Amino acid sequence: MAHLYRGEIHRMKLWRERLDRTSNWAVTLIAAILTYAFSGASRPHPVILVGVVMVTVFLVIEARRYRGYDMWRSRVRMLQRNVFAYSLDPSQGIEDPDWRPRLSKDYREPRTKISYEEAIAHRLRRVYLPLFTVLLAAWLFRTVVTPGTQPWPASASIGMMSGMLVTGVVATFYLVLVAITFRPRVWQATGELRRSDVGAWDDIE
């Protein structure tokens, strides 16, 4: 069981690193796009929206990786709760009496434990919503605060698309992001730490 646990920890660590790698790509891309967009007054504002599209692609990729990461983390948490926690303090009993059949079934038929939408919500809360906010602030600054030769909303136009239409599309996209991030839901991710879970250790008598 100890070797099994060590193997699951190693696999979970590898998937954790894959998540971090995608986030690093997104941050690097944003830095490059903002550097280009603000390097001169004549730079077109749509390049920032291209950054929004690319970061969305990274978000979708990372959500898929997060679902895989949660598979291995759920096994680690099952072993921690029902093997090691019980070994350290048997007086608390076993949290899940059916953990052995459940773990055995998961090894026979591995399946993802969370939906794509929940995975996207997790990554938005942890990483991507602040990144999207930075891009939105940069786009608003280029089109509203420093619009150039045309005032807003004309400054937000792209080709044949009017500035109001572009602004409406951007606003709708960000409203969808906020709805996915903060929609009330029952979280299925196993062992996920949230702000409400953070606190001091209880005194043990």
Results as ranks from 00 to 15, higher is better:
Asp202Val: 04
Arg64Tyr: 09
Tyr116Glu: 00
Glu95Cys: 04
Val55Gln: 06
Val186Pro: 12
Ile114Thr: 12
Thr181Leu: 12
Pro110Gln: 08
Ser42Thr: 15
Ser196Gly: 06
Asp203Leu: 05
Ser87Thr: 13
Glu8Thr: 11
Ser91Glu: 09
Leu177Asp: 00
Pro44Asp: 07
Leu103Gly: 13
Asp203Arg: 07
Arg195Val: 12
Ser104Pro: 08
Thr112Asp: 14
Leu34Phe: 00
Thr167Cys: 15
Trp139Gln: 02
Thr28Tyr: 15
Leu79Ile: 13
Arg100Met: 01
Leu165Met: 03
Lys113Asn: 11
Met54Gln: 14
Gly93Gln: 14
Asp20Ala: 09
Arg142Asp: 07
Thr172Arg: 13
Phe141Ser: 06
Arg6Phe: 10
Leu135Gln: 07
Arg142Gln: 14
Leu165Pro: 01
Val55Asp: 04
Glu118Pro: 03
Ile33Lys: 10
Ala85Trp: 02
Met164Cys: 14
Trp25Glu: 12
Met71Tyr: 05
Arg125Gln: 13
Leu165His: 02
Ala189Asp: 10
Arg81Asp: 14
Asp202Gly: 04
Tyr66Met: 00
Val47Tyr: 02
Arg126Leu: 11
Phe84Cys: 15
Trp25Asn: 13
Arg142Lys: 15
Trp152Lys: 08
Val166Cys: 08
Leu136Tyr: 15
Arg75Pro: 03
Phe173Thr: 04
Gly168Trp: 12
Ala31Phe: 13
Ala171Gln: 07
Ile30Asp: 11
Leu29His: 11
Tyr174Glu: 10
Leu88Thr: 11
Val170Phe: 08
Tyr128Ser: 06
Thr56Val: 09
Pro151Cys: 03
Leu124Thr: 01
Leu4His: 13
Glu8Cys: 04
Gly148Trp: 06
Leu165Ile: 04
Ala121Tyr: 06
Ala121Cys: 07
Thr22His: 03
Tyr128Asp: 07
Phe132Lys: 05
Asp20Tyr: 00
Asp202Tyr: 01
Arg73Ala: 07
Ala171Glu: 03
Met78Glu: 14
Leu136Trp: 14
Ala85Met: 02
Arg16Ile: 00
Ala121Gln: 00
Lys105Pro: 05
Pro153Met: 05
Asp98His: 15
Met78Trp: 05
Asp20Trp: 02
Val55Ser: 04
His45Val: 00
Val176Pro: 07
Leu175Lys: 14
Val76Glu: 06
Val57His: 02
Val52Ser: 01
